[in-house]
Design a binder for these strands. Structure first.
Lengths: 350, 350
DNA sequence: CCGCGAACTGTAATCGTTTACAGAGTGATC
DNA sequence: GATCACTCTGTAAACGATTACAGTTCGCGG
């Protein structure tokens, strides 16, 4: 029998209402009971300010109503919009969301998946920076459903949502070529990641498709960040003054490139057209506003969340793998058109 | 006795190692045992890939090793940097972080505090958009330690960390006046929030302090957002062409104002100086880069996290209330100096 | 060889909830 | 009035770990 100290439990309520703990539980969960019993239990619970212990409930029920989202970097706007959309799906269903920042450390990613075995979370949305054999092995044994945001080898038996960064890059390069640009530089992020590799592929694909020969000297890699983008742009422009446009692997790099251009007295887009990627708030923030490829991070978050909850309450479907189509959002940094803030013409869908 | 299905439990291990569940628990938690016992338990655990059930552990232990952070908007860079710093403090200590987005709904904020009673989280960092009597009442009865990021009436018995947005605003206005600006407009966020009110006070204080009379027509309020900032700036400049500078309650508004100025052919800072607030990535993203008041969101997150963990393992100290001093980060939007990207002179501390 | 203490181990209670099962009460029907 | 069906209730067993307590083993000194 619980003493007066400590928060009220089902037993406290039972004592006060003069019924058994079973009846308390039944009343509070809306299972049938005699009107009189219902009244007394509800009154006792209200008077004592009873709130069921969620941990005990999880232990019995085997479900925590918690989901985990693991991504490389809380600060990156692309992941922030994933978080927002995941919340939008899961919060109305009564799930809490655990955030895990892996800082792009592969071992940390594996740990998150492994820790599903502690039963502390009902499922995981994982955004790995790269996928190794170890990832696949660990994912295959995951103790709870996992949805991966990113590309997996076809064999993997895990739900996934991927961006099509090859097509996205092609959209951007094609757009630049249609505008008459020929010396198109490329500032990429770290090359040893899946998106990094794909963007590189897209860049070369689109150039070849247009009958041009990619010049390796025009494609550089660097860290993500505004400063890094500015430095890379300066180096490129120093070495190859003939460059008429630059495509960047995210909006931060693109903004950095735009700053570098300004510092050198180049006009955007007349002297240098700039295209970013992710269509984050930064793209609209720039002046001129940046043309940017939207890889649909929000959409990927939403779809991943939907897949996860479907697997949680639906049971076992076959493995799903969706791809989100990229959109090119055209703004002044490639057209020079004077548009009002907030506008932006959506051009293509791959 | 657990059958073969389901994940291994302490009982499965015990059976396989030929010992009792108590010994299993002791070995796994590093309490004393005979070398032979240790070896057998560890081997059995390793072979079965045993991971302790965190829910059961929490039930017995009364601690979940989970903390909750509730803020108005996941997308706002100020809150994102709080999240990052909170993670930096709590992750090394083995805490998981639950994110809760209240969407600035007061009732939602109250629910988060109340839900501490379900024992699902060991503590809460709450970032309320405004503090009502109901807030204080609910906070006083909170079932777990809470740290508030924001201003509380002195009487409240809750740890808190506040920004000094009055001083921050004074820094900005004083800076503008030192630069010879006299017609200083003010684009504020929603006025019925605590920060909104304080920024207004700071604006008027600094003007009076300098012997100027605040002109109510120059101070407007609007939603947060780039577009909103642009619209507000257009309205202000239409109505009062003599304005020579504008101070904005966050960087998004400031960027919007900068866009509006560009659209009207005004030069920044020659024709219009612009100051933002929060010193988010957006401030560096702008062209020219924005002078901005850093209210220390990251620092507030870090301090709040430290207070919370101190209260969790330390026990009961007296109530603490810290204030983070603002910094003015001066960039081109008020000086016109051609600085390289990434630089920015830090001027004053209140 | 006995007794003592230390070191280890096992049994069982505990955390707070849900729920299978069986018992108790109610009313209707023949 | 006995029987039956039905609804409601209480007892007790889970869920999976930790831990107080009591019991066992062992070494060692006398």
């Amino acid at each position: 029998m619980p003493t007066s100290d400590g928060p009220p439990t089902v037993e406290t309520i039972a004592a006060r209402a003069g019924v058994s703990t079973a009846s308390v539980s039944r009343v509070l969960n809306g299972h049938g009971a005699r009107p009189d019993t219902v009244r007394r239990v509800e009154q006792a619970a209200a008077e004592l300010g009873y709130v069921p212990n969620g941990v005990a409930r999880s232990l019995k029920g085997g479900r925590t109503r918690q989901l985990t989202f693991a991504m490389p970097d809380v600060g990156n706007p692309a992941y922030v919009s994933m978080v927002r959309q995941i919340q939008a799906v899961t919060k109305p269903l009564g799930y809490r969301l655990l955030l895990h920042s892996t800082d792009a450390v592969a071992e940390d990613e594996l740990d998150v998946v492994r820790s599903l075995a502690d039963r502390t979370s009902d499922g995981l949305i994982l955004c790995p920076i790269r996928v190794t054999g170890a990832h696949l092995e660990v994912l295959a044994r995951a103790a709870r459903p996992v949805v991966v945001i990113g590309s997996l080898p076809g064999a993997a038996a895990v739900d996934s949502v991927r961006a099509d960064s090859v097509s996205g890059t092609v959209l951007a390069i094609r757009h630049l070529m249609e505008r008459g640009r020929r010396r198109i530089a490329f500032i990429n992020g770290p090359a040893d990641t899946v998106p990094g590799r794909n963007r590189r592929i897209g860049y070369e694909t689109a150039l070849r498709e247009a009958g041009a020969v990619p010049d390796p000297a025009l494609a550089v890699t660097t860290e993500f960040g505004i400063e890094a983008g500015a430095r890379a742009a300066h180096r490129l422009l120093d070495a190859h003054p003939g460059i008429d446009s630059v495509f960047c692997a995210n909006d931060q790099l693109a903004l950095g490139a735009a700053h570098a251009a300004h510092d050198r007295g180049l006009r955007i887009p007349e002297d240098l057209a700039v295209v970013g990627m992710d269509d984050s708030e930064l793209a609209r923030a720039g002046h001129p506003a940046l043309t940017s490829v939207d890889l649909g991070s929000g959409a990927r978050g939403r779809i991943a969340a939907e897949m996860l909850v479907a697997r949680l309450d639906g049971g076992a479907h076959e493995v799903r793998c969706e791809t989100v189509a990229p959109r090119l959002v055209v703004r002044e940094s490639t057209t020079g058109a004077r548009t009002r803030v907030g506008s932006g013409a959506v051009v293509g869908v791959a």
